[in-house]
Simulated assay, not measured.
Amino acid sequence: MKKGIGIMLLGFVLLLAACGSNEKQAETSDKLTIQLDEKNVTADANDIFTVTGKATPGATISIGDVSVDANKKGTFELMHIYESDKSYEIVASKKDLTETRATVHVTQPAAVKEEQKEQEQAAKDKAQKEVTENAKPNAAKISFAMLNGNPDKYARESYYLKGQVAEVTDGGATKYLKVNMTQDGGTWKDTVMVIYTGTTEAKKGAIVEVYGTIYGTYAFDDANGKTIAMPGITASSISVLE
């Protein structure tokens, strides 16, 4: 009899142990997981980097507002735009489960950065060459009267002018120069607003040569709150002649 009771107690203990093991497995399966293949990745020449790894199947893996879902095996591949050499936070989320986070550090090779810099400079040089080549021919066709009559009609056209600075306003990185572009005897008239991002030695009374593009109508409020409108020129270069 005692032997039978002992066997029953042993069976009950084994049953409890098995239940505890099952509960532990269930608890483990409820935990959201994420594991990255690499914690340091490199962006390519197109400013894209790729993060791969394994997570809880069906979990959503995201960096900011870009996301993918882990497949049935839990693997994922997430591509994102490279912004700068820094760490990006990766979030794994799934309904009714607590989010899990990981971090990947992204860099871009110096050679790639240098190549991009060279391409950007080449594009700027090309654009500047086109402006310089077309500016004077366009200026010969577009008189101040035409420009003043409808500045917006000629917006983004290359343009050239030579004139006298009537006023300079320092807006920090951007300078605003009122320039009279038509010489009439010993005076200058026909004012345009020249908008220039950069540094210039041009001062009131200076004769300048400007290459750039037509901005269109440039409007601003004067000291009395009155709105003034005039043709605007976005300068790519300003040379002080005298």
Rank of each mutant, 00 (worst) to 15 (best):
T98D: 12
Q121F: 04
K94T: 11
A145Q: 14
L9W: 07
A229F: 05
Q119S: 02
M181Q: 11
T75A: 08
Y88D: 02
D44T: 04
V41E: 01
K95F: 03
I34K: 05
S67H: 13
D44L: 09
T28H: 12
A206T: 03
K73A: 06
G4D: 11
T197P: 10
N224W: 00
A26M: 14
E242D: 08
K162F: 02
D47A: 07
D30T: 07
G232K: 01
V208C: 03
V51F: 04
T75P: 01
K72A: 08
E120R: 13
A43P: 10
A139G: 10
D30I: 02
T107R: 08
I207C: 02
P231W: 08
V208A: 05
G11Y: 03
Y160Q: 11
T103V: 10
D47H: 03
L10F: 14
A123K: 13
A111D: 08
T50D: 07
A122L: 06
N180W: 00
A45D: 10
E115F: 00
T52F: 10
G58F: 05
T100V: 14
D47N: 12
I61R: 09
G53A: 07
T234F: 13
A235N: 13
A122R: 07
I63Y: 05
T217G: 09
D152M: 07
L97D: 03
A110V: 07
I5A: 15
A229Y: 03
A155M: 09
S236A: 08
H80D: 13
Y215H: 15
N22P: 00
D69G: 04
M146P: 01
T217W: 14
K24Q: 14
A111C: 00
M79L: 04
T213E: 11
P137W: 02
A59D: 12
N224C: 00
A223L: 05
E201I: 01
L36W: 04
Q108L: 02
I48T: 14
D44M: 06
D69V: 03
S84F: 00
D44A: 06
V41Q: 00
D125W: 06
A206N: 10
G58D: 06
K136C: 11
Y196D: 12
R101N: 12
P231E: 08
T98I: 04
A202F: 07
D184E: 11
W188S: 01
A18I: 10
I5Q: 15
L78W: 06
V91E: 13
E242S: 07
S67N: 15
T199N: 14
K203P: 00
S158A: 15
Y196W: 13
K136W: 13
E38T: 01
I7D: 14
E114Y: 01
G20Y: 02
A110T: 05
L241G: 00
Q35L: 08
K2S: 09
A229T: 12
A123T: 07
K94R: 15
L14C: 11
